[in-house]
């Protein structure tokens, strides 16, 4: 009788263990083991795109009218749950005032309107695809918007020789996670269309992990003592563009903005 009970108990344990574990709340998310590239690295290759409204405003916000009357509903800002952990960007007081001024004057001030390179991490969640191409010593991230390109130096890590729009990126693998540390920003980019901004002291640490065949988890931690009282993090999934003909097309926007920038200087 004792042995029978033990066997039954063991049987139940084996069968019900997963359920029990989940119910006890100590389950971990099922860990996806990414396929590997020919070089043996976790495979992040592909065309990816964010699918949220962070490009309007990375903080949680409700829908509101847009700044361009004739665009009507298509120019209005949809609501978003935000991608900032803790909901609020921890601005220093002056920087917050600047953010609000930026928002009020965003049609004049948003650098992306003028087809300027969008910076990091904004390029990641703008509503355009980008492609990750893993090479031997470099990983390239090529964005459709304005043809922005990021070189991620995987082996030779050096400091930024000079400031740039997309920053200077050094990357390494932490298990299956690609960690990218970027600095050397020129301070002229925004985080979104809502005026969220930073200085040239910005340092961004991104962590990119393949979550499934068709998704990545993307995190980015921002540090900028000129602008924020502490570091803060954004987090979102990125989705694979699985169409067989998916391709990064040109979005050479310079010619779309020449009248805007130079129009008043026409003869």
């Amino acid at each position: 009788m004792g042995t029978c009970l033990k066997k039954f108990a063991a049987f139940c344990l084996v069968l019900l263990w997963p359920i029990g574990v989940i119910n006890l709340g100590i389950a971990q998310e099922r860990t996806y083991i990414p396929t590997r590239t020919a070089a043996g690295e976790p495979d992040l290759n592909g065309i990816w795109q964010a699918n949220n409204n962070a490009h309007w405003d990375i903080e949680a916000h409700s829908a509101s009218a847009g700044p361009v009357l004739v665009l009507g509903a298509l120019g209005a800002m949809p609501g978003g749950m935000g991608i900032v952990e803790g909901d609020n960007i921890p601005y220093l007081p002056d920087a917050l005032a600047t953010r609000n001024e930026h928002f009020a004057n965003r049609l004049d001030r948003d650098p992306a309107i003028k087809c300027y390179l969008p910076g990091v991490p904004r390029a990641t969640y703008m509503p355009y695809p980008f492609q990750i191409i893993q090479g031997a010593e470099h990983i390239m991230i090529v964005h459709e918007f304005a043809g922005a390109v990021r070189t991620i130096y995987m082996n030779e890590h050096t400091a930024a020789p000079a400031d740039s729009w997309m920053g200077w990126s050094n990357g390494h693998w932490d298990g299956n996670t690609l960690v990218i540390e970027t600095e050397g920003f020129n301070g002229m980019t925004w985080f979104d269309r809502a005026g969220n901004h930073h200085s040239d002291a910005l340092r961004v640490v991104e962590r990119i992990t393949r979550r499934s065949e068709g998704t990545l988890i993307y995190e980015a931690t921002m540090e900028d003592p000129n602008t924020f009282s502490r570091s803060w993090t954004i987090r979102m999934p990125l989705y694979k563009r699985i169409e067989t003909n998916a391709e990064i097309l040109e979005f050479r926007c310079v010619e779309f903005v020449e009248d805007l920038i130079y129009g008043q200087l026409q003869k």
């Binding site: 090479g135 043809g147 390109v149």
Partner: peptide, 19 residues
């Protein structure tokens, strides 16, 4: 830059990535 499925040629001026 190349891997099994893609070659990328980045032209210095003006950061044109041919994929």
């Amino acid at each position: 830059i190349q891997n099994r499925d893609y070659v990328m040629i980045l032209v210095e001026m003006i950061h044109d990535a041919r994929i």
